[in-house]
C-alpha cells in the first residue's frame, strides 16, 4: 500500500492537506507529520538560565513552553485530520525539524510539503532553509505546493543575456 506523508507546518499546512486529498491514490495510507523543533523552548530555557541566581527551576518558562508546544502540535494535527476527512495516522516528532522530516519519509512513496519562503514571486527564494533542506535530501518523490495560489509567470526572472561570441 502506498504511503503518503503530509508535512504539517504552522501557517502553510492547509494547502498540503488539500493537495494530499487531491493527489493521494485511493486507499493510500496518509501520515500527517508535525515536527516540533527544540529551538523555541531552548530560547526560553536560555533566557531563564541567563537570569543569574533566580533558582526555582520549576519556574523555568522553557518547560511551560514545551508543554504548550506539545498541546499545540496535537491540536494542529487534529485540525489537519479534520480538514483531510480521510482515514489517516498522525505522527508527532521532536528534534531538528528538517532532519526529522527526511527521516520520517524513509520508505514513503510521496511527501507533500509547502514552499515556506518568499511567496510573491517564482524562484529559488520561495524555499526557506527548512524546506530547501528537505527538497535537497528527501529520498522519496515530492509534491511541492504553494501555500496559496502561485504567483503569476511574469514574476519569473528574465533569462540571462546570451553569451557574446567574439
Amino acid at each position: 500500500m502506498a504511503v503518503v506523508v503530509v508535512w504539517v507546518v504552522e501557517g502553510t499546512w492547509p494547502a498540503c492537506v488539500d493537495a494530499a486529498r487531491a493527489h493521494a491514490p485511493e486507499g493510500a495510507e496518509i501520515v500527517l507529520l508535525h515536527v516540533t523543533g527544540h529551538d523555541v523552548a531552548d530560547a526560553a530555557h536560555g533566557a531563564f538560565a541567563g537570569l543569574l541566581g533566580r533558582g526555582h527551576p520549576e519556574r523555568d518558562p522553557g518547560t511551560r513552553v514545551e508543554h504548550l508546544a506539545a498541546a499545540s502540535a496535537e491540536s494542529l494535527l487534529r485540525a489537519a485530520a479534520e480538514r483531510l476527512a480521510r482515514p489517516c495516522t498522525r505522527s508527532e516528532r521532536t528534534g531538528r525539524v528538517e532532519r526529522e522530516v527526511v527521516a520520517a519519509t524513509d520508505g514513503a512513496d510521496l511527501l507533500v510539503l509547502a514552499r515556506d519562503g518568499d511567496r510573491s514571486r517564482l524562484g529559488p527564494h520561495s524555499l526557506g532553509p527548512a524546506s530547501r533542506f528537505v527538497v535537497d535530501h528527501a529520498a522519496c518523490p515530492l509534491l511541492l505546493v504553494w501555500p496559496e495560489s502561485a504567483p503569476d509567470l511574469g514574476t519569473m526572472p528574465p533569462p540571462p543575456p546570451p553569451p557574446h561570441h567574439g
Partner: peptide, 23 residues
C-alpha cells in the same frame, strides 16, 4: 522571561502562527 514568554507562545500557537519570532 518567566510570565510573559509562555503567554506569547500560547497566543502564537492559538493563532496558528509560527511561534519562533515572537518567543
Amino acid at each position: 522571561v518567566v510570565l510573559l514568554t509562555p503567554v506569547v507562545f500560547a497566543t502564537a500557537a492559538r493563532l496558528g502562527a509560527r511561534p519562533k519570532p515572537h518567543v
